[in-house]
């Protein structure tokens, strides 16, 4: 793969990660191209979610976790996982959508405005604009514009997940992380989220963890296949799904293990 043609948004360099004594990520090197979708696939326990959660320092929330190596964020070239970098600074720039929709016990409006409020923004004009723009961006505006003040938990599962996407978009993130965003949703809601992901990559760099190989094939430009904490193969998605160069990758995508 030639490096010169692509514009990098982030890059993992010799990344290792430990849950206490457990060595969960082993020497990971991988580029993330700007405004593309990069999918992480692999069997349960392979470390794909662990890898994803390094990007916004979620591991800092729990004790005994340790990072080694670098994840460089471009263009500033800061090391995301450096202990000198405040994880809150990182999370201000890199948003996340979780496996299970997790709206806050607040109104639809306040859910989307949350990220701006925690940054101290409270001017109604700014918030109104950001809420509408993000809800439109998450293809939810038309469905909820008449009831922005009703509780978010009253929405359907698929709507809740799109609300969480709107929440993540509201702060204008540089990278959007998706952790199996459709695993709790029905097929219709799933395809809506997938369309949305394809659309969003025009504005933001996306990394998505998925169990569903069809999903990775449909939405992503690059795919990394992980196994036992290592990247076994990383390439253009077409290449991974049509002509994988590694035997393990081929066995996994053809459903022979995992």
């Amino acid at each position: 793969m030639t490096r010169s043609a692509i514009e990098l948004k982030a890059e993992a360099k010799n990344l290792n990660f430990y849950y206490g004594p457990v060595h969960a990520l082993k020497n990971i090197n991988m580029p993330i191209e700007r405004r593309k979708v990069t999918a992480l696939i692999g069997p349960s326990g392979c470390g794909k979610t662990t890898f994803l959660r390094c990007f916004n320092r979620m591991h800092d929330l729990y004790p005994h976790n340790r990072y080694e190596g670098e994840i460089i964020l471009y263009p500033d070239k800061i090391n995301i996982i450096s202990p000198e970098i405040d994880p809150i600074e990182i999370r201000m720039q890199i948003s996340m959508v979780f496996q299970k929709p997790n709206p806050f016990p607040k109104s639809i409006y306040e859910n989307v405005a949350y990220g701006l409020r925690v940054r101290g923004i409270s001017r109604k004009g700014i918030l109104d604009e950001a809420v509408e723009k993000s809800l439109r961006g998450a293809a939810l505006w038309e469905e909820v514009k008449g009831r922005l003040n009703s509780l978010a938990v009253d929405l359907s599962g698929g709507q809740q997940q799109r609300l969480c996407i709107a929440r993540a978009l509201a702060t204008g993130p540089r990278i959007l992380l998706f952790d199996e965003p459709t695993s709790a949703l029905d097929p219709t809601a799933t395809s809506k989220i997938e369309e949305l992901i394809i659309e969003l990559k025009n504005e933001v760099t996306i990394i998505i963890v998925t169990h569903n190989m069809q999903q990775a094939a449909r939405v992503s430009d690059y795919t990394a296949f992980m196994y036992l904490g290592e990247i076994i193969e990383f390439d253009k998605t077409d290449k991974i799904f049509t002509a994988p160069s590694n035997r393990l990758t081929e066995e996994y995508i053809t459903g022979r293990f995992g």
Binding site: L61, I88, R91, M92, F98, N102, P105, K106, Y114, R117
Partner: peptide, 29 residues
């Protein structure tokens, strides 16, 4: 209050204090 709700707040760049007062307390109200 489930941890994944707190994680949602932290992931938006909230501090511990903001998470406790803006998310956990309303959820446990």
């Amino acid at each position: 209050v489930p941890m994944y709700i707190r994680e949602g707040s932290y992931a938006m760049g909230a501090t511990k204090f903001q998470t406790a007062f803006k998310v956990v307390i309303p959820a446990a109200f």
